[in-house]
């Protein structure tokens, strides 16, 4: 047995490992984008398979069930239209007042539905993959929400899919406001998040806080990634230490992302 192939292969592998570790963040992103393009045919195949499956299952639904559902949706739609009509004068008034006060107009978000197509292959991160990418207008740092509240932000936008860092991931820290006390803090992951993805830690609360378990949390709008006022979750427990300048709290997030199938990307 000759040692030459072993020496050559080991040297090449070491060289690749060193190159990977010394890549700049931009170069690493480019490399990731390049390798993620290898999955494009698989993503497309999955998309086709899903739409074919949906089409076939739709064919099996009875006409009566469809008519019932249609009637229910029409009823809900008319209620929502009425409610929307009531908010139009309020929103006009708000816009006029903002103009008079020379305040920046509030950005209007255009939510776009995306399907969850995968989860981070390693256990060390909390991120998901969605079927909308840069080709659909998705950009890095766009907020992502579910019906029940905020769930994360776009971490990376590839041409046909995107990676979303979820609340509780070390790479997704959110500034939140406690509705009752108007105090702000930062949501961070904790060891418990690994066990229960809806449990996170709220840090940087004032040393003496008036917040109580059960208080609701909303995004504060600080940091300019997440718009203000999106529901995040509830306070579960407060851990104050006498003499400490800050208080921490345990937060129960509103959305259990491991049970989700669809999310909304908020596009400006």
């Amino acid at each position: 047995m000759t040692n030459r192939p072993y020496v050559i292969t080991t040297s090449i592998v070491l060289l690749f490992a060193v190159i990977c570790f010394s890549l700049s963040p931009t170069a690493a992103k480019r490399a990731k984008r390049l390798f993620s393009s290898l999955y494009t045919p698989l993503f497309k195949t999955q998309r086709i398979a899903q739409s074919t499956g949906e089409y076939l299952s739709n064919q099996t639904i009875s006409r009566e069930a469809l008519l019932d559902e249609n009637a229910e949706l029409k009823r809900q739609n008319s209620i929502l239209e009425l409610k929307l009509e009531q908010t139009v004068p309020l929103s006009k008034e708000n816009r006029n007042l903002r103009e008079q006060l020379k305040m920046r107009p509030r950005p209007e978000w255009n939510p776009r539905l995306a399907r969850i197509i995968g989860r981070d292959p390693s256990n060390w991160w909390r991120s998901i993959l969605i079927d909308l990418g840069a080709n659909d207008g998705v950009k890095i740092d766009m907020p992502v929400v579910a019906k029940t509240g905020l769930i994360g932000r776009v971490q990376e936008a590839y041409p046909n899919h995107s990676q979303i860092a979820l609340l509780g991931d070390p790479d997704c820290r959110v500034s939140v406001t406690i509705e009752a006390t108007k105090e702000t803090g930062i949501l961070k992951s904790t060891g418990e998040t690994v066990y229960d993805p809806t449990l996170v830690k709220l840090t940087h609360l004032p040393g003496v806080t008036l917040a109580r378990p059960g208080d609701k949390l909303y995004s504060s709008g600080l940091g300019e990634i997440f718009p203000r006022g999106i529901y995040v979750g509830k306070l579960l427990a407060i851990h104050s230490r006498p003499g400490s300048l800050t208080t921490t709290a345990t937060v129960k997030l509103s959305t259990n992302t491991s049970q989700l199938h669809e999310v909304w990307v908020l596009m400006p």
Binding site: V13, A28, D120, P121, W124, S127
Partner: peptide
């Protein structure tokens, strides 16, 4: 290819 789908830095498992 695995790190292209993950938050982990590229080539962590080489």
């Amino acid at each position: 290819t695995q790190s292209a789908l993950s938050t982990s830095s590229i080539g962590t498992t080489i």
